[in-house]
Amino acid sequence: MSINQQYALDVYRASLHGEPAPPAPGVHDWGAIRELRDYRRFRAVVAGRPAHGRIRAALARLIHPHRGAAGC
């Protein structure tokens, strides 16, 4: 069963029981990704690491190992 078929079945069942229809698939995806990003930033701060720029700093160390992250 595809996700669209499951959604149609859920909407049908909700209408039978007089409940509100569930949200369509994919409606809240970007919000979930934002929450995950915010959670990871929060955990980094709690652990004493910088909250942003970690990927850029890691790439800079790989590209310019003699300069380190501060030189880029």
Results as ranks from 00 to 15, higher is better:
N4H: 10
R40H: 06
F42T: 05
A51M: 11
Y39S: 12
Y7G: 00
Y39M: 11
F42W: 11
R13M: 14
A32E: 12
S15W: 03
C72G: 15
R54L: 15
R61L: 11
R40G: 06
G26P: 02
P50H: 00
V27E: 08
E35M: 14
P23W: 04
S2E: 04
L16Q: 13
C72V: 15
P23I: 01
L9I: 10
G68E: 02
Q5R: 09
A32F: 11
R49M: 14
L36F: 13
S15K: 07
H66T: 08
A51F: 01
R49G: 11
H17Y: 10
G68V: 04
D29V: 12
G18V: 12
G26M: 03
A47E: 06
G68A: 05
Y39P: 00
D29H: 07
E19A: 13
R43Q: 12
I55D: 08
R37V: 15
A60H: 01
R67M: 12
Q5N: 07
L9W: 01
P23Y: 06
A21W: 02
D38C: 13
P50F: 00
L9S: 11
I63R: 12
P23M: 08
A60P: 02
L36R: 09
Q5L: 11
A60V: 03
D38R: 08
R54K: 08
P20T: 00
G31I: 05
H17K: 15
Y7K: 03
D38P: 05
R54N: 13
P65N: 01
P65H: 00
W30A: 15
R37H: 12
A70S: 14
A60Q: 00
F42H: 10
